[in-house]
Design a protein around this nucleic acid. Structure first.
Length: 338
DNA sequence: AATGATACCAACCGCATGACC
DNA sequence: TGGTCATGCGGTTGGTATCAT
């Protein structure tokens, strides 16, 4: 049994709003306010619309001081930075941009900004290389290649890593990765740094490969192998994070599922390997979010993980924790195999 | 000029949360 | 304390506009 509908679906109008409907809603709200009850509002003013629809129309379109389109470079930068640090929490991002709605920013990001930043050709190439299609990829020798298990990592996390690289390069083209003290980007954990370093390597090889492809000349096999090797290396994560001797300070055989990885993961998400978290001054939004926790850094890597937030529907759920754990475990086991 | 592909964006949907009883 | 309901949120859909062939 599903949830009861919020209104009589059969008797409500759907689709685009007419100018008359807009005028009716706007006039009423400007005069009387919403009355704190969106559900009752459409009936009150004689609109055959769902209350939710009225609310959305008001918030996204009719509300005063709403800006549409014409995003500035500064706004672009804010959106990019916040997306990388906190993910797709559009309402929080919108709160940093007066006059912008979460819906507008979400649309702008999905349709334009993301492509602008990543570069359309590069992105599609990367995604296909990472085997989003679900096909079992082969390396040049025709063997299944473990490196492609990268698909087990969420595409959103990968995307943010790529974006981080792009932004970092824009901010400081001579910096290998995020070791620039003047950078406005979130500081990275050793694991993230390792991944970004490898992504840079991938991108370099990819550019060469693309040039080869465009000139209709087959890429040398060793270059293909380098590319695959770079992906593989991405999985060979930092010793600091994966070597039990370093972390636990004792000689200990490590088996995935033996309990150690759970401990390590727990340490990681609870920030026991500290020293790389962003300061609150770096992101105003952190203050507003009032998490009481500085797990943001891990949050942006793992996409949706959040410990204390009650502001978003999916954050902080065990599913997200589980997903993050799975990604972690996958990388862990691959590191063991290699 | 016709047609298909792609981009854009308004609106919808369902879930999570919090307030209230 | 548990149930109900309104609201907020993010993902997705579908219609329209624009571009490419």
């Amino acid at each position: 049994m599903g949830r009861a509908p919020c209104c009589d679906k059969a008797n409500v109008k759907k689709g685009p709003w007419s100018p008359e409907e807009d005028a009716t809603l706007k006039a009423y709200i400007e005069k009387y306010g919403t009355g704190g009850n969106w559900i009752a509002l459409p009936q009150k003013i004689g609109l055959k619309r769902c209350g939710k629809s009225c609310r959305l129309r008001w918030l996204n379109y009719l509300r005063p001081n709403i800006k549409h389109g014409g995003f500035t470079e500064e706004e672009d930068n804010i959106i990019c930075s916040l997306y990388i640090s906190i993910g797709s929490r559009w309402s929080i991002i919108a709160a940093q941009l007066p006059g912008r709605t979460d819906n507008d920013i979400k649309n702008y990001w999905n349709t334009r900004l993301k492509k602008k930043l990543l570069g359309k050709r590069k992105q599609s190439n990367m995604i296909s290389r990472l085997s989003i299609t679900g096909q079992e990829p082969k390396n040049v020798s025709g063997e299944n290649d473990n490196s492609y298990n990268l698909q087990n990592m969420s595409s959103a996390a990968m995307e943010r890593l790529q974006l981080h690289v792009q932004l970092q390069n824009l901010q400081n083209p001579f910096s290998t990765y995020n070791n620039n003290p003047s950078s406005h980007l979130p500081k990275l954990s050793p694991l993230q740094q390792k991944m970004i370093q490898t992504l840079n390597s991938i991108n370099e090889n990819q550019n060469i490969l693309m040039q080869q492809n465009y000139s209709s000349t087959p890429a040398p096999p060793d270059l293909e192998q380098d590319y695959d090797q770079a992906l593989s290396n991405l999985m060979k994560t930092d010793e600091v994070l994966f070597n039990s001797d370093v972390i636990m300070g004792k000689n200990r055989e490590v088996e995935p599922g033996s309990g150690f990885i759970e401990e390590e993961f727990d340490d990681l998400i609870n920030n026991k390997t500290t020293g790389f978290l962003p300061t609150e001054a770096e992101f105003d939004c952190f203050k507003e979010m009032d998490h009481g926790s500085k797990n943001i850094n891990l949050a942006w890597l793992s996409n949706e993980f959040d410990t204390n937030s009650g502001s978003s529907s999916s954050w902080g759920s065990e599913n997200m924790l589980h997903q993050m754990y799975q990604e972690y475990a996958t990388m862990y086991s691959m590191q063991r195999e290699s």
